[in-house]
Structures are given as C-alpha cells and as structure tokens.
C-alpha cells in the first residue's frame, strides 16, 4: 500500500474544524442577530474590514472552513453510498474549497492595498 497523503488533508480538516468551532458561532451571532437587530451599526463592521489583522482573520476563517467542509463532505458522500465516484468527488470538493480560498484572497488582499 502506498504512502497516503491523507495526513495533509486531515490537517486542513482539523484546523478548519477547530477554527470554525471556536470562531464561527460568535460571528453568526454578530452578523445574524446583533446587526439586524440594530445593536451593531453595519458601519462598524465595515470599518473593521480596513484592518489588516481582521482581513487575515477572515481569510483564515473562510479558507479553513471551506477545506473542513470539503474533507468532511467528501467522506459523507462515500458513507452515503457514492463509493464508486470517490475520487472525482474528492477532486470537486477540494477544488471548490481552493476556488473559494483564492476568491477570498482576491477580495481581501487584492481590492485594497
């Protein structure tokens, strides 16, 4: 049996799972409850995007969350019976995550200095 490169993908899955677990609930609370209820002016959030540290944080959160999904979802589809298509499924999932990551980088680091 050849050496598996799964450890690399599992690292991304694990990092993404940890980051999403720690940071995502509070972010959803902010964007889905505090902002719409008027407890947080959208301008405040908008202004935060100017900060490099915030942009880096969002890049890590979005990119790793997408890779977490890609890895988990690809195994879920196999668990649900799509074993025969497991290689194309994996490719599509990781490619989507990569595409999302690149888009995020462009928006966060490409549009402003």
């Amino acid at each position: 049996m050849s050496k598996s490169n799964e450890p690399f993908l599992w690292s991304l899955f694990g990092a993404g799972g940890m980051v999403a677990a720690l940071f995502m609930p509070i972010c959803i609370l902010i964007t889905a409850i505090l902002a719409p209820l008027g407890l947080l002016p959208p301008g405040n959030l908008f202004a935060l995007f100017g900060k490099l540290l915030v942009r880096l944080f969002l890049f890590v959160l979005i990119a790793l969350s997408l890779f977490h999904w890609a890895h988990r979802f690809r195994f879920t589809l196999v668990d649900l019976g799509l074993k025969k298509a497991k290689t194309p499924i994996a490719l599509v999932c990781y490619a989507s995550a990569l595409a999302g990551t690149l888009l995020t980088a462009v928006f966060l680091f490409g549009l402003w200095s």
Binding site: C27, L58, S65, H68, W69, T76, D79, G100
Partner: peptide
C-alpha cells in the same frame, strides 16, 4: 457530518 454544509455555507456568506 452535515453541519459541515452549514459551516461552508456561512463561509460563503462571509
């Protein structure tokens, strides 16, 4: 396992 769809969904919203 299906929570990963919502994790990705929110990431896409962001």
């Amino acid at each position: 396992e299906l929570t990963s769809l919502f994790v990705a969904g929110y990431a896409v919203f962001l």
